[in-house]
């Protein structure tokens, strides 16, 4: 896996790694149970401070994206079968609100925005199908 890390970006490096792995898992480049590089390997690969990587992994683990098994490595976590939908809603809402605000100021509202969301979801599903083929 290759993560594009921009140390000069205003987004902190650990956040870029969190986002990168989350997106790789969501795009199914990584499937549940897949082994991902250890902190050490990742640090060496990217020439990035190992503590920064460790911080990103900690955050990912807290969020249930990855699991670390002692002496075996770090893996993408199984997706929750019966997730707490209430909690998911609560967590997602501020992000959606943020998108709505940004969209508003960029002159996009209502149906147009819904259309965009649907388009994005469809693109992803197409990508999944491509990978599974």
């Amino acid at each position: 896996m290759h993560l594009n890390i921009d140390t000069r970006s205003s987004i902190p490096v650990y956040q870029q790694i969190v986002d990168g792995i989350k997106s790789a898992a969501a795009k199914r480049i990584y499937n549940p149970g897949d082994r991902i590089p250890t902190v050490r390997e990742m640090a060496s690969q990217l020439t990035i401070n190992p503590n920064t990587i460790a911080k990103a992994y900690q955050k990912l683990e807290q969020e249930g994206v990855i699991v670390t098994m002692r002496s075996r490595g770090t893996f993408i976590a199984e997706r929750q079968n019966h997730p707490d939908k209430q909690r998911a809603k609560k967590l997602l809402k501020p992000s959606l609100e943020h998108i709505r605000t940004e969209a508003f100021h960029l002159g996009m509202e209502g149906e147009e925005l819904k259309q965009l969301v649907l388009e994005t979801l469809e693109e992803w599903e197409k990508e999944w199908r491509d990978i599974e083929k």
């Binding site: 140390t7 050490r40 640090a43 020439t47 990035i48 401070n49 190992p50 503590n51």
Partner: peptide, 26 residues
């Protein structure tokens, strides 16, 4: 980086090069 990640060695280094630091220092 390998040394710090693999052996847990603590590293103190001085540099003029902010780019190097940005990438490697915490």
């Amino acid at each position: 980086i390998d040394e710090a990640a693999g052996q847990g060695t603590s590293i103190l280094y001085s540099s003029h090069n902010l780019n190097d630091l940005e990438q490697t220092a915490d």
